[in-house]
Design a protein around this nucleic acid. Sequence first.
RNA 1: GCCCCCAUCGUCUAGAGGCCCAGGACGUGGCCCUCUCAAGGCCAAAACAGGGGUUCGAAUCCCCUUGGGGGCACCA
Length: 499
Amino acid sequence: MTSSPGTPARTRFAPSPTGRTHLGSGRTALYDFLLARQTGGQFILRIEDTDRKRLEPGAEEELINNLRWLGLEWDEGPDVGGPHSPYRQSERKDIYLHYAHQLIQMGRAYYCFCTQARLAQLRQEQMKRKEPTHYDGLCRRIDPGQAEQRVAAGEPHVIRFKVPEEGGITAHDHVRGDITVENRNIDDYILIKTDGLPVYHLAAMVDDHLMEITHVIRGSEWLPTFPLHVHIVRAFSWDEPVWVHLSVFLKPSGKGKMSKRDTAEAIKDGFSIYLSDLRKMGYLPEAVVNWSALMGWSYDDRTEFFTMPELVEKFSLERLNPSPAAINFSKLDHFNGLHMRRLEVPDLAARIKPYLMKAGYEVDDETLLRVTPLLQERIVTLDDAVAVGGFFFEREVTPNPEDLVGNHMTPAESAEAARRAYQILADLPEIDQETAEGPLRSLAEELGISAGQLFSILRTAVTGRNVSPPLFQTMAIIGKEIVLERLANAIELLENLNG
RNA sequence: GCCCCCAUCGUCUAGAGGCCCAGGACGUGGCCCUCUCAAGGCCAAAACAGGGGUUCGAAUCCCCUUGGGGGCACCA
């Protein structure tokens, strides 16, 4: 029933392809992956597509892309196959039917012929009487032989699980402990729909058993139907997996879960709960993994930085936290910075490149390689490279003339300072920190201004903005020719400004 | 309304009866470094929801209240 830390775990991530991949799904898949890798077991991807109405084209593909992006490779799945194929539930219809019929034979399930209209009305009446909304068991009382006849005659029907009328059940959640529920509070849930396809409650239990899943890791939205699932598993006398219900994610305020509107707000602020958005925004998969791993799980009282291999080593089911966690996007920024700074320069450069190109810059690798170290400690997301370092890849730069004026200086004084700096720089064989800084500092002194005043004029002239990476390193990369060109242009702007 | 779950700084969390007048991280404020912006370093403010028990002793165990969350589909 429970496996000791050493035994290989078989875990599964079982999403339904009904929409975009959510952060919460990513975290569940991550934990599945970590546990499997840590124990030398297998991580399985199973597509739960039994709801044909809610299916969204492309969702499965998006899902697969997102999981791969996070670095979560699965050992068995619809695309890679495996010993328990198929891994798409819509292709396993007969299997579920077989087990549903077995349940009927055992007296643990029954055919139900109630129409959806009757069920809706029933629910409404129960609500009005402030009673729990449950199936009233009408078809439970039909003679099984008679029911078989009606089914044979082609009457539309579903199959319902027969929950015992008396007693209760104790289900064990690994995170929360025992959860005991009275049977009368558990509905006779539908197992097989009129279309012959199963509902999650049956399909997941059957597949988890057949696929020899040892740990079911899923969201806590399954807690209410958890006792039902245990009933089903026990009805078949199957071994129970370790049940692990993860906490839900709340919106950043901690009040309620992310609504459509909250999601839109987040995107406006440069955040999102969708994996593909996060990727587009320039977050590193390493950071998303590190960040989401820590929502609902902790290692100790001080360690927070983890790489994937470290997580594989340190992850533990025992340190899962049952309480809901509010999403903290600023912490994602923090982790993104940490992981970014840890990357080798060529690696970071390769990741930045697509963002620069998408912004329309022509990027030559040699320059990029020299620019990247300057960007590395300044950008929060890969996309920031465009705003912070775009000017490295432009021929011309267009500073705001006002910004060229030095602090507490007149345009004329600024122009003169720029002219003097131009002469100094023009006489240098090449411009870099060693050759340029000393002479320019002396110039500032001679002009009776601070180095900061002079540098800010040059910065704006050379980069087109008043905030940039360190001046001399920046000029070294840009090169003498273009630096002088931009400086000349700035001097002209200042002279015109003077009027 | 009914069922279930949860409850430590604004947020993520450490804490499994004395090590805690509660530790770390993000964020915030200040200082240092400094050619701007960052990065980095240092410091600060900031929490055991409330009430009853149990105990020599409770953030830690029990109960109640309150608050929050999830679910109540021929969706997952």
